[in-house]
Simulated scan of single mutants.
Amino acid sequence: MRSRHDTSHDFEAYVAGAGARLLHTATLLTAEPPTANPRARRLLTLALAHTYADWDRLRGGDPYDHTRQYLATRFANTAWHHPAARLRNRARQDTPLARLTPQERLILVLRLYEGIAEEQTAALLGMPAERVRAVFNRAMAVVLGPPPRPAPAVGGVKAVAS
């Protein structure tokens, strides 16, 4: 039986090796700037706490995969089911990822940055693979397309101050 000290040491080594990549994934999901990412840090902290709680039960399983799965499902549950979170994301339209819906961003990050196959992404999110493919293609079109331009000004019409 492993001691609590061994478990803590192993977990600390895991976080030292995988923490930066997981934080980058969380930052991509929240579409926050890398230097100001409190939501991403909170998301990662919750995912790492969940992994630590399950550490002894992982027994040869992949802790990175375990943490990433929790990170993705926690993000999905928060972003998809809480309108205020969606509105906060929409307020920052300065990056291509911020222009995506939370679902589009999650699928794009899992498929491109994390390299997860379409079928695995579908299984993780409980969606048909065809839906994942459609969302991914739409997200790619948004990210690769030109940013939206402001509407042209209408000549001779002035805005009325209220």
Rank of each mutant, 00 (worst) to 15 (best):
A16L: 09
R88E: 07
H5D: 11
T35D: 13
F136Q: 14
G115H: 11
Q69I: 08
H50A: 09
G115W: 03
R99Y: 05
A76P: 00
L43H: 06
A84R: 08
P102H: 06
A20R: 07
G156N: 01
A26W: 08
G61W: 04
A98Q: 09
I107C: 13
E104C: 03
R138P: 02
G60N: 13
P34E: 00
E114P: 04
P63V: 03
L108Y: 15
A72V: 14
L48M: 06
G19R: 14
Q103S: 08
G156R: 00
W55F: 10
P102V: 14
T73V: 14
A76G: 02
L97G: 10
E118F: 12
H66W: 05
A13K: 01
A16M: 10
M1H: 13
R2I: 09
A20K: 09
A72L: 11
A141W: 10
Q120T: 08
R92I: 02
A91H: 11
A98I: 03
V132L: 09
P150A: 12
A117I: 03
D6S: 10
P150W: 02
D62N: 02
T51P: 03
N137I: 15
R133Y: 15
L87N: 09
P128C: 05
L124K: 06
R21A: 06
P150I: 02
H24D: 10
L44Y: 08
R57P: 00
